[in-house]
Design a protein around this nucleic acid. Sequence first.
DNA 1: TTCATATACTTGACTGATTCAAGATATCGC
DNA 2: GCGATATCTTGAATCAGTCAAGTATATGAA
Lengths: 129, 129
Amino acid sequence: MLRGSALRVTRPRVAVLSAVHAHPHADTDSIIGAVRRELPKVSHQAVYDSLHALTAAGLVRRIQPAGSVARYESRTGDNHHHVVCRSCGDVADVDCTVGEAPCLTASDDGGFSIDEAEITYWGLCPSCS
Amino acid sequence: MLRGSALRVTRPRVAVLSAVHAHPHADTDSIIGAVRRELPKVSHQAVYDSLHALTAAGLVRRIQPAGSVARYESRTGDNHHHVVCRSCGDVADVDCTVGEAPCLTASDDGGFSIDEAEITYWGLCPSCS
DNA sequence: TTCATATACTTGACTGATTCAAGATATCGC
DNA sequence: GCGATATCTTGAATCAGTCAAGTATATGAA
């Protein structure tokens, strides 16, 4: 995957990419932890740099619900959305409904040229509700 | 408005509420600046506290697009959404389209009890595009 | 395989938004 | 006007994330 995106293949990057695949919606700190289980000496900066590189290459997607730190996931390019628990902050995926496209055209875009509509659903997860 | 929400009427709160009305989508720092034009000696903490109190009371709404600091607006309870400029971070309001409601029912909520669907449109504002 | 070079990583300091905590002050019901 | 209590001031602390300088490593060419 890294080579496919013209990214150099380094051990930190491989570990970060695996960690994001293994722990969807994990925050940076959890990813650092997961990476260090494999490569104990990786710096936090290397993880931040890798996440930025992977995000820029489109191999991972960064999400950041209001009030949360950045989280990363490996499902990209499928325009899915997220539910966030107001109580514990847990995040789950929500697939697009078929009927969505027309609704996500803004009625009045205020002159903006819109290229993406991101939906965040808010509520309570099963264990908190 | 403050009394209507059973909040004590203090000069900092009045100034914060006016500032949010006068500067929609302003971040906390701008609000502090606006408040201090009227009351130069207000502490930043008082502004943070006021914004929290006003948000809890529903008199203002807090929004925080990914990668941005918290912003506040006085339009509440009308379920409108936002367009955010990827370049300058500027925020504008987008009214609900009539057809939206059915689309914003998640196809699979993963067991979450959802109470709100928040849409953020991303693109470029007129001056950046 | 070796080498050169650009890219990535390590280390350690720093920033900036936000929060915490303790004591002083002001609001509001009586 | 007075007392109780919420709010504000002051100043320090936290935490995610960034910056910067120097070292190490991946990769393409010799």
